[in-house]
Amino acid sequence: MDNIAGSKSGLTWAVHISVVLLVALWLFPTVGLLVSSFRTSDQISGSGWWQSLFAIEQNLTLRAADPDDEGTQELIDGVYTVAGNLFGTAGDADISVWGSSSRAIDAYAPGETADLGDGETMTVATNGDYVWTASEALTGRGQRVFVTAETPPEFTLDNYEQVLLSGNSTDSMAKAFFNTLTVTIPATIIPIVIAAFAAYALAWMDFPGRALLIAIIVGLLVVPLQLALIPLLKLHLDIGIGKGYLGTWMAHTGFGLPLAIYLLRNYMVGLPRDIIENAKVDGATDFQIFTKIILPLSFPALASFAIFQFLWTWNDLLVAKVFLIDATGDTTVMTNQIVELLGTRGGNWEILATAAFVSIAVPLAVFFAMQKYLVRGLLAGSVK
């Protein structure tokens, strides 16, 4: 009965449930990052991203308008008066209690008048409208008001404007974005070009030492990246390409070539031999076979490695820290910029969330655009 056509075994259901859980495990943080990037700092500190569509009750510290500002203070019936709205404009906020001191933030209900001393009084309405009066001219900064209010959902594009367009180099990631593209695009294209030629030679050309080269490439796959950083940096400094884009491209190329050659060689070996032999009979050279037959047929493997290399170089911090150090910040990449934001703006979660989502937007777009080739490329050469 367990093998009736159309029925699914318990193992199949377990696999499906596991896949759904894994997808959710990776999806929820990404969605949370996206939602948080559009929220204000008060909203983030007051509730989780999953509550972003609902009104929340928050304790807020607001301030009345500065009486020294021109046109703010008026003399009405012999009383100096400052009026306005604590939220800027009357909106959907609903104040339940308020106070003039941090030690008693719930001292007054909306509509009640507080005695601030020295002849000053303040009245706050439910929607945030206030009237601040005094017998003598008010000076200094606006009166602080502590309120407990239910605020509606609030989303803004100011976070992206500050991160991408701010003139402050500490906050702006626009330059870091283009610096990352400058590192990633050549570091993806160069190893693909070199590996494609090498893979074709190892797959279809007979020459002495071919088996030894393949064994060396397989061995290089298990060499730790950290083991080669210092010797490679010393070599780059000796030949004059250290601490710049060229040295970074060469480092990424060297670290990515073993996997690229191994992946492409396995795929090319699995291509039909008859096609290559017929092309040789027709007088095609190895270069013509490579460019007109092998490359078009190997596109899934090329795209698969391109995804891996692009994601690795885009998200890289270690190689950038070692080979791309610039005190002026002219070559700072996005991963390093986010690390600096953590140090300088560690409390501004809205800025950090926006910067982090900007950094993952391009890899997500590349992955979804080329994901159909990923599995085909990963299975290259596994089935004959």
Rank of each mutant, 00 (worst) to 15 (best):
G247R: 04
L220V: 00
L202R: 10
F87E: 11
K175E: 02
Y108Q: 06
V333E: 12
L86M: 02
L232S: 01
L379A: 14
P110L: 01
L297I: 11
Q58H: 12
F299Q: 13
E277P: 08
L264D: 10
V383G: 10
D282I: 02
V23G: 02
V31E: 02
T248I: 03
Y80M: 05
T331H: 06
L213A: 12
A320T: 12
V35Q: 05
E136I: 02
A251I: 13
D42P: 01
L21M: 12
M205R: 03
S304P: 09
S359C: 13
E161A: 06
V145N: 03
V383T: 13
T133N: 00
A65S: 13
A137Q: 15
G84E: 12
V23N: 06
M334Y: 02
V193R: 01
P191L: 00
F308Y: 12
A380I: 07
E136Q: 11
V23Q: 04
M1Q: 07
M268T: 09
A380K: 13
V79M: 15
G209I: 01
D115L: 04
L86W: 04
I275D: 09
M122F: 13
I44W: 00
T40P: 11
Q58P: 03
S102D: 14
I275E: 12
Q143T: 00
T123E: 06
D316C: 12
P191T: 00
E70R: 10
Y373K: 08
E150I: 14
A251K: 03
A198I: 06
G6D: 07
I17T: 09
N278L: 07
L116V: 07
L62A: 09
A125S: 15
L53H: 06
S9I: 01
G88L: 12
V35P: 10
E57M: 03
F38C: 08
T354A: 15
F178A: 00
V218T: 08
K372Y: 10
K243I: 10
D171W: 11
G254V: 06
I190G: 11
S52Q: 05
V82R: 01
W98Y: 15
N159T: 11
E136F: 04
S359L: 05
S9R: 14
Y267C: 05
A5C: 08
N85H: 10
Q226E: 05
T151N: 14
E70A: 14
M250Y: 03
A215F: 12
M122R: 11
L295H: 12
A199D: 10
D106N: 15
S36M: 14
Y80K: 07
G32S: 12
L246C: 05
V15E: 01
V319A: 08
D171I: 10
S9W: 08
N3M: 13
F287D: 04
V366G: 09
I261G: 06
F323S: 01
E112T: 04
W50N: 00
F146G: 07
K384F: 09
M205I: 15
V222Y: 01
L213R: 02
G119E: 05
E74A: 15
S298E: 07
A199E: 07
T188D: 08
T126P: 03
A327V: 15
I214T: 07
I360C: 08
E340H: 11
S52I: 04
L378K: 06
W312K: 11
P258R: 13
A356P: 08
F146W: 11
G244M: 05
I325H: 13
E350L: 00
A211H: 05
D42W: 01
S102A: 15
T180I: 08
F305I: 13
I239M: 10
L164G: 02
L324H: 05
E150W: 00
G381I: 02
L212S: 04
